[in-house]
Simulated scan of single mutants.
Amino acid sequence: MAAQKLTLAVRPRGKPVKKLPEEVSIPANGRASELYNQLALEAGTTIHRLRITKGSDGAFIPNTQHLKINLTGLREQSTIYVKDLGPQIAWRTVFLVEYLGPLLIHPLLYLILPSTASGSGPSYLQTLTLTLVCLHFVKRELETLFVHRFSSATMPAFNIFKNSAHYWLLSGLNMAYWIYLPSAPAAQESGPMITVPGLALFIIGELGNLSNHLTLRNLRSSGGAERGIPQGLGFGLVTCPNYMFETLAWVGIALVSWSWSTVLFAVIAAAQMGVWAKKKEMRYRQDFGDRYQKKRFSMLPGIW
C-alpha cells in the first residue's frame, strides 16, 4: 500500500528564494530531512541555507531524519515558510580559523618584539607562556578535527569575522603584545611559588577539558543530532565541567604570564562560557525532565 502523500503550500519568508516551488508533495511518514532535500533540489541551493517553519504557528521544523512529517503537525494543504539563511560556512572551518589566530600571532610577536630590556632575548616566563598558549590552541585545533561532533553543520558565513575577532584580537594580538614587550612583567623572573601552581592549574585544566570533550563526543553518533545526559569527570558537580576546566587552564596561563591582558581574556571567556552553561542547564531540564539531576551551579562550584 502506497504511503499517503501530503501536498504543502510553500511560501518564502523574507527575501524571495529563486526557483522555490509554490507547493511540494511528500509522504506523510517521510522524514523532515527529505522535505529539506526536496526543496533544496528544486530551488537549486543547499539544505544548509534553508530554514523551514510552519505557517500555522511559526514553529521551526528541524532538518533531521529523526522527525517524521506527520509528527510535525503538518496536514494536507498546510503552509510552510522557507527562509534563505544566506551563504553558509562549516562550523569546523570556523573553529579552525578562530584558533589559528593566536597560533600565528604569539610566535610572530615573540620573535619580533624585543623581549628584554637588555636585548638578550625572551625571558623564561615569556617562553613558557608562549609554549602554554600554543599547546592550548593546538589542542583546540586537534579536537576540532578529531573529537568534536557538531549538531549544526554550518553557520552564516559572515559570522566568521565576529567569532574570529575574539581570538585573533583578545587572545592573539592584545595578549601577545603585552606579554612579549621588554617592559612586560613576564620579562622578569618569577618565583616558583607562583609559576608552579600556574603550571599545575594549566595541566589539570587541559586534561580535564579533554576528558569532558571525549565524554560529550561519545553522546552523539557521527553526523547525528541526538542528545544525551553526560556523566563522568565533573558532570556530577556542575552542568559544564568542560568550561570549568577551560577556566582553570586560563587562570594557570595568567599566573605564568603575569599579564592583565591574559586576565582580561580569561574573564571575558569565562563570562561567555557561563552564559552558555546556564542555557545548557535549562536545555537539559527541558529535554530530560525528571531523568536529569538538576545542578545548582552550571560552571563554577559555589560561584556560577
Score class of each variant (00 low, 15 high):
residue 199 L to H: 04
residue 203 I to Y: 05
residue 118 S to F: 02
residue 28 A to D: 14
residue 283 R to C: 00
residue 235 F to N: 07
residue 101 G to L: 10
residue 273 M to D: 04
residue 61 I to C: 04
residue 250 W to C: 05
residue 197 P to V: 09
residue 141 E to Y: 00
residue 276 W to N: 08
residue 57 D to P: 06
residue 58 G to I: 02
residue 19 K to H: 15
residue 61 I to M: 05
residue 192 P to F: 10
residue 46 T to E: 15
residue 199 L to P: 04
residue 77 Q to S: 12
residue 207 L to M: 13
residue 299 M to R: 03
residue 271 A to P: 05
residue 143 E to T: 04
residue 184 A to Y: 07
residue 7 T to A: 09
residue 48 H to C: 00
residue 147 V to P: 02
residue 94 V to L: 06
residue 77 Q to R: 15
residue 291 R to Q: 12
residue 178 W to N: 14
residue 191 G to T: 14
residue 246 E to M: 03
residue 176 A to G: 10
residue 63 N to V: 05
residue 75 R to L: 12
residue 206 E to T: 13
residue 188 Q to H: 14
residue 78 S to K: 03
residue 208 G to W: 08
residue 84 D to T: 09
residue 297 F to M: 04
residue 194 I to K: 15
residue 51 R to V: 01
residue 283 R to P: 00
residue 169 L to V: 15
residue 110 Y to W: 15
residue 176 A to L: 12
residue 36 Y to M: 08
residue 100 L to G: 04
residue 57 D to F: 09
residue 144 T to V: 11
residue 208 G to L: 06
residue 168 W to P: 02
residue 33 S to E: 14
residue 304 W to G: 00
residue 280 K to Q: 14
residue 211 S to L: 08
residue 71 L to H: 14
residue 235 F to M: 07
residue 34 E to R: 09
residue 76 E to C: 02
residue 15 K to W: 05
residue 200 A to W: 03
residue 254 A to K: 03
residue 155 M to Q: 11
residue 57 D to K: 08
residue 139 K to R: 14
residue 85 L to I: 03
residue 59 A to K: 14
residue 116 T to Q: 13
residue 300 L to R: 06
residue 88 Q to I: 02
residue 260 W to V: 10
residue 10 V to M: 13
residue 21 P to F: 13
residue 68 K to W: 01
residue 137 F to Y: 15
residue 127 T to H: 09
residue 186 A to Q: 09
residue 48 H to V: 00
residue 197 P to M: 12
residue 54 K to M: 11
residue 65 Q to A: 15
residue 275 V to G: 00
residue 10 V to R: 13
residue 166 H to E: 01
residue 118 S to G: 11
residue 275 V to Q: 05
residue 280 K to V: 01
residue 209 N to Q: 06
residue 107 P to V: 02
residue 279 K to D: 09
residue 123 S to T: 12
residue 249 A to N: 09
residue 20 L to H: 09
residue 129 T to R: 07
residue 122 P to A: 15
residue 142 L to R: 03
residue 268 I to G: 00
residue 280 K to M: 08
residue 20 L to I: 10
residue 12 P to D: 03
residue 232 G to L: 12
residue 38 Q to S: 12
residue 149 R to D: 10
residue 14 G to C: 06
residue 275 V to W: 10
